[in-house]
Simulated scan of single mutants.
Amino acid sequence: MIPTYIPILKGKKGEFDALKHTNPSTAERLKPLFEVPAFAGSIAESKRFQDLAQPTVAFLNELAVKMANVWEGRRCFVDARHWAPNATLENGEHVLSYVHSRLASLGVLSNPVVNYDVWDDPEYQEVFKDAGVGNDATLCIRLQSDAMEDLDDPEYFMERLEEIIASTAFEEARICVLIDFGDTAPLSVIDMQAEVEKCLEALSRWRFAYIAIAGSSIPTLINDAVEEINSTGFVTRKEMLTWKALKKAYPSKNLVFSDYAIRNPNAVDDVPAPHANGKIRYTITNQFFVVRGHSMQLHDKGKQYHRLSAVVANSSHFLGRNFSHGDEHIYCCAKGEGGCGNPTTRITIDTTHHLRAVTTEVLEFTVATAKDVEKSR
């Protein structure tokens, strides 16, 4: 089954809670790609992992259980791009092997992701060797910066891709390719469209299940989105405009939309930010409507979200309290009802709205494009 939307989500509480509150009609159209957080920094230093003989195993098991609590019985992709390609547990087992086997035991239908950029590592290759034999999963081949550069030498690119396919033993019909631009800040929509078209040409020799196009236009810092405190602004979702242009240009191809939800892929986690500004990233057609507050250390602190929520709820962009769990929270918060939540809560609120909004936008555009194609015949 081809998903409507592949959100690339951090394996964090905010995202897990967002999926927990996502309505079934939206959830059934998603195939999230979970990125396993690195076991480092404040996570590794947490008291619960101290004095354990196998703290990495404990961390990954905890993560797998959390994932199963919200995605049991559903399909997803799992990637460990934040780990070294040869990362292993204390007992020598590769991180990815353990995560996939643990998720399977918990009822999560996890599908493998091969990162083209790190395929040269022999220990990484071993994880995927013959993974497709007797397996009904879908393999995702993730193309990022190195792959984009290799496209200038199509013969080398295709040889390397053929090696991945042969090594994993997945049939072409059970392989998807993710063209991942990451942070789109340095790129224009024209640049992205040209890169994808170059990639589509190189991939034309294979009959893959589908090709996904991913990126993130939301800046790492809020002041890069909205310069003035206590004001609003708009951020163009270049990844969406790119996907729409290509979907229209190539209606017969199975092109799937993907993005990083409301987080920038380069954002640093687990770093204290006491002066972070209050903010709401509200997804609208082709854009983010960003409402910026002020430092969480000033006067009303977290209570500023009552005011920020009112800005969204009273705007022409608000889709109503019944649209998603996030919209319900914004509606109530705007009226001063209930708590405003912590930073993790805000990730959940913005993400639940985003998942529903993007799924709706993709479906509506797909239907409209199909009608235009039918009319042109």
Rank of each mutant, 00 (worst) to 15 (best):
V133G: 02
A334G: 15
L355E: 04
H354A: 08
W83M: 04
S188H: 01
G338E: 01
N254E: 12
D17W: 03
M158C: 11
N115G: 00
T26P: 12
R102G: 03
H94E: 10
A27V: 12
W206T: 05
D350P: 07
K20H: 03
K253E: 13
L60A: 03
R356H: 15
I218E: 10
H294A: 10
F16L: 13
A27I: 14
V235S: 15
L30T: 11
I175N: 02
D117N: 08
R292A: 11
E15H: 10
N277M: 11
K31Y: 15
G73P: 06
H325T: 03
P3C: 05
K375A: 09
E374T: 12
L9V: 01
T168Y: 12
E162R: 00
E149I: 01
F128L: 10
N223E: 12
S101F: 03
F365S: 10
G338K: 03
S46C: 10
S217W: 12
R292T: 03
I213K: 07
K244I: 04
I175F: 09
I190E: 14
R102F: 08
E28N: 02
S188Y: 10
E155W: 10
C76N: 06
G11N: 08
R205P: 00
Q144F: 03
W83Y: 12
V114F: 15
K248L: 05
E163N: 11
L60N: 01
V271Q: 09
V70S: 10
Q125L: 00
P3M: 08
P112H: 14
S188N: 01
K47V: 15
S97P: 03
G320I: 01
A185E: 07
V312M: 00
G293W: 08
E62N: 02
F234Y: 11
W119C: 13
R102T: 02
T242M: 08
L308N: 06
P343T: 06
S42Q: 02
A80Q: 04
D153W: 11
A249P: 15
C340H: 07
F234V: 06
